[in-house]
């Protein structure tokens, strides 16, 4: 049975901090960070924004683009994030309540480093494909923290993408999926710890690249397709450089990744990264376009997806704000002091 995306939406904070502003505080060399990470600035959530609020806004936009899906018909809400506001208490039920999808619903919060969002998409798709429910909502959202002065601080950002999966009235039909995982100690955060730890350069070749290539090559083989068959491709983007490199090495072109390559000015939205990239890509895709997508989550694994865009995209893309507009307009740049206050990095001892 055909299954896929019925409605999609994204949400991003309007606040940005530039690499120079962070580098200045830690005496780091901004030009080399900008070059090394291929990243100029990142989004910062204000104190009243978190994974749940980003999810609600993204989900509301997905509902708008679904063209009249009744929230009560959504059978499941899965939120992938490594920054759920509560350690114990689901994010999904709050989102369900806010969009009017309670009480006949299945909710679960997923966690798999940066792959939790695509994981939610994978499970949601499986449910509708199996006929378990009419619609399933998958949300990929994060408000990630990097430890002060750590390389991650230059990239850890916030954003959300939401997808209502169904079997009718699709804007993008799923063609193939493939998942590829191994046990990989490249990045982790222990229980009760505030900031994640990582293996430095060990997060590259054997981690990000091995898994994204593993999932990508497998799905290409499975589908019998080659990079040139796709209009667009989106890869997990912990910075600007990694997705560009993996894309080019796999045989994709810069033009194919451009619409969904958000990290240079958005930063790493963790679970949100490739899903938000997909929303930005759908915003510009044409009916019939094939879209390649591959996530990556430390620990480690990649989910790859092949989507085929339908006629309906022309009708829905401008029903609400486009992702690029959220990325590029209405911005406000903050200094490190404001950023430190927003992200609770100031110890008040009270």
């Amino acid at each position: 049975m055909a299954a896929g995306i019925v409605g999609y939406g994204a949400h991003l904070p309007r606040h940005r901090i530039k690499v120079e502003e962070i580098a200045k505080v830690w005496g780091a060399d901004a030009p080399s960070y900008k070059k090394g990470l291929m990243l100029r600035e990142k989004s910062v959530p204000p104190p009243d924004m978190d994974t749940i609020t980003l999810s609600v806004e993204a989900a509301r936009r997905a509902l708008i683009r679904s063209g009249g899906v009744d929230a009560a018909d959504i059978g499941a809400i899965y939120i992938g994030s490594e920054s759920h506001p509560y350690a114990v208490k689901p994010s999904g039920t709050t989102v369900a309540e806010a969009i009017g999808a309670t009480p006949d619903i299945h909710c679960a919060d997923f966690e798999f480093a940066c792959k939790a969002g695509s994981e939610a998409m994978y499970v949601a798709l499986s449910h509708v494909k199996a006929g378990e429910m009419k619609y399933a909502l998958a949300i990929a959202a994060d408000t990630s923290q990097g430890a002060p002065s750590d390389a991650l601080e230059f990239s850890a950002a916030a954003g959300a993408g939401a997808f209502i999966m169904g079997t009718e009235n699709l804007v993008a039909e799923i063609q193939h999926t493939h998942s590829y995982m191994t046990d990989m100690p490249d990045f982790w955060r222990r229980e009760h710890e505030f900031y994640p730890q990582h293996g430095g350069r060990f997060t590259g070749e054997e981690a990000y690249f091995a898994h994204t290539k593993g999932a990508s090559n497998a799905i290409l083989k499975k589908s019998g397709m080659k990079p040139s068959d796709f209009a667009y491709a989106i890869f997990h983007q912990p910075n600007g450089k990694f997705p560009q490199r993996v894309a080019l090495e796999l045989g994709f072109t810069q033009e194919q990744i451009d619409p969904g390559w958000l990290a240079p000015t958005l930063g790493n939205t963790y679970s949100g990264a490739s899903p938000i990239g997909l929303t930005a890509t759908l915003d510009v895709a044409k009916p019939g376009d094939m879209i390649f997508m591959c996530s990556y989550g430390s620990g480690a694994g990649s989910d790859s997806f092949i989507w085929k865009v339908t006629e309906r995209i022309d009708e829905v893309r401008d029903m609400t704000v486009r992702t690029r507009k959220l990325l590029e307009e209405n911005l406000t740049y903050i200094d490190y002091g404001t950023y430190a206050k927003f992200r609770h990095k100031i110890i008040k001892n009270k």
């Binding site: 104190p47 924004m49 978190d50 749940i52 609020t53 509301r60 506001p85 709050t94 806010a98 307009e329």
Partner: peptide, 26 residues
């Protein structure tokens, strides 16, 4: 109106969500 955190009982208590108003820009 956007969905935001309105109040929270420190870092340990419940988070109260609700509407806040943002300038309409799109």
């Amino acid at each position: 109106l956007e969905f935001r955190r309105v109040q929270s009982e420190g870092s340990h208590g419940v988070i109260s969500y609700g509407y806040k108003a943002v300038p309409k820009w799109y």
